[in-house]
Amino acid sequence: MSPDPFLCYSEEPDVAVDLVRLARSLADPSGTGVRAVVPPGAPADLADRLAAGGAHGLEIVPGPAESDPQVLAATLAEIVRVAKPGLLLFGSTKRGREVAGRLAGLLDLPALTGATAVRLEGESVRVEREALSGNAVAIERIPRGPAIVAVLPGTTGPAPAPVASVERREHPTAPPPPLTERTEVRTKPGGQLEIEKAERIVTIGRGLRKKEDLTMIEALARALGAEVGCTRPLAAEAGWLSDDHWIGLTGHRVHPKLYVALGVSGAVQHLVGMRSARIVVAVNRDANAPIFAQADYKIVGDLYQIVPALLRALGG
């Protein structure tokens, strides 16, 4: 008897493909158990991408895009009833976590979010996740059959061998009426930057005195072939940079080869976003700033003197 299948769901196409890879790396190689949801309103090529990405089966929900969490959860509940998954893998995006919580409540399922590694151990799933605002890593255990684990974007497995014939199942649902109405959608400024993919990052914190001084930071980033990152206050409070530059617990997690932190104190909620950087440089005029404990190269000094000097050193 083959074990209960995995069911992968994310409204983000790239994350959905990553989930299928992750599921295939967990699945019994001889099994046929990785199924992926093609949500309503998905891009036309998603079904083919998921099939090429290694899914054994697709659960296709036709119809226009849906934003109401309760309708999405009811739709997924219907798929769960038919597909009988042992483990549901979700993307731990904002919408992913919201729908995970709603579905977990609806079907009384165990659920975990923010996972960075997943392993099957007998009847339970061992999940590594960020804990204590990213200050720590927790190992948590959730029973299979079925349960929801939402993994942070970027958590995936190797590219699996494609499947010869992919089973496609349509779910023409009759969901309950939505409880919320979306009256407007505004694209956020910025949005082109994919800082999580940058190889080098120059991050600026509240050590920056005024918005105009960003020119100097941008020049340094250019000289290093880097993208500009920032701490929460610069994006959320000052609004000097758009949210796509924001690094940390409530921003982006980055994995560059070089991370230069300028005028950044190093709060735990920031450190969680940059912990996996290979080489970390910190410039801060306070020798006791916590960021120095996370640095490979440390300069105690004024960024307003160091940055121009670095530009001279690199540009010369």
Partner: peptide, 24 residues
């Protein structure tokens, strides 16, 4: 929540109560 940071209790509560939820 600051320690667990799951983002689950709100939507789960809404499902338990069978009412609308708006997160974030």
């Amino acid at each position: 929540s600051t320690d667990h940071f799951a983002g689950l209790v709100g939507p789960r509560l809404a499902a338990e109560l069978g009412v609308a939820d708006i997160a974030y």
